[in-house]
Amino acid sequence: MTSTPPPPTSADVARLAGVSRATVSFVLNDTAGGRVGEQTRQRVRAAADQLGYVPHAAARSLRAGRTGLVLLVGSSAPIGPLFSGFYRELQQALQRHGYTSVLYGPSRGGGEEPARGWAELRPAAVLCLESILTPAGVGILHRAGTRAVLTLGTRPVPGAHALVMDQHEVGAAAGAHLLARGRRRIGVVVPGDRDLDQFSGPRTAGVRSAVASSGLDARVELLPLGYTEESGVQAAARCRELGLDAVFAYNDEYAMLLMRSLQDAGVDIPRQVAVVGADDLLLGALLRPRLSTVHMSLPKGEELASLVEQLVADPSSVPVTGNLLTVRLVERESS
């Protein structure tokens, strides 16, 4: 039975490159500034590549007194292309700032348990997409050495920097548009996936507030819709029973599902029923009729990475609170 050889060390790299271990550390951690010449840098990197050596993150963290780890806590809800792109851009920006970002899987359970699991990794910063973090959980993270805790959810959490995604405005934009188009019997899709409640609830409230503030004789009806073809058929039948002349379909995917079912049932879109989605997916613009939608914009990854760096450098800075989301209605043929 062959034994596995021990992993290469910085001493091995130093011997092969003909330099000191300190020089290896300077080069591979990019901390030497101009003190190491370019030829020496290339020699060290070539030796590291030849040996398959990579720096030990835990040892580096011990020397620095903190980790360079940023924990991005995933959502149990389907986050879609908008947030997938946002996370990808943010991870690239954090890397440029010298951080290692890790996408942590969705955390189930309540109370402080999710925060205890995150704290075990001793991250320098935590960005939590869902509103599952509690004030006590924020305290656990800070006591474990986490210098910045940011929530990217639908509500702020005391003790954390809160970047709020105001889903209410998504529904309000859709509702105002449908009212302006003369629609008065508006259905609002409520997804069957309960993980989406944190988004669908405020969006529904946004449509209701648009109707209430308009002063018009209009009504809002809830339209349950599971993400299946069978449920789409049932929702289309429900639309006709309720005499709806418009639907805000939660997002573009649910909108496309409902539109197909309505068209199969002989409903003319938008003459009989106008449909609006949200997310502004490319596929929605390829439909016939093209799908009206609420476009949502998130801050650039570089902006958020710079904020993380600032908060890690100065954990005592004034709490940051702000709206993370801006919305605009994209009008197309479906409404």
Rank of each mutant, 00 (worst) to 15 (best):
P123D: 11
V207E: 08
L324G: 03
G34N: 14
E169F: 01
R41W: 07
P299D: 12
T154E: 15
G68T: 12
V294P: 11
V149E: 10
P135N: 12
A32T: 05
A313W: 05
V330I: 15
S200N: 09
G145K: 06
A119Y: 08
A174N: 05
S214F: 04
N251D: 15
E229S: 11
A172F: 13
Q310M: 14
G139P: 00
A235L: 03
D193K: 02
P289D: 11
V320C: 06
A173K: 02
H56T: 05
A173G: 04
E241L: 07
L103M: 13
L127H: 03
V170K: 06
G322W: 08
R208N: 03
V247Q: 02
W118Q: 10
R181A: 14
T40P: 05
E221F: 05
V54Q: 15
A313T: 10
L329W: 05
S297P: 00
S297I: 02
V164E: 10
Q310N: 14
E89W: 01
G215L: 11
A172D: 09
A124S: 15
L262K: 00
E221S: 13
L225F: 01
A59C: 06
S214A: 12
Y53M: 09
L69I: 13
I140E: 13
L163Y: 02
R41D: 11
G266V: 03
L325A: 11
L257W: 00
V308E: 09
R122T: 11
G34Y: 02
A57F: 06
A124Y: 09
T31K: 13
Y254R: 03
S213T: 14
A48E: 13
R143D: 15
G139A: 15
S61E: 07
T151C: 13
A285F: 01
K300H: 14
T151M: 07
P299L: 10
L94D: 09
H295D: 13
C128P: 00
S25E: 13
G33T: 04
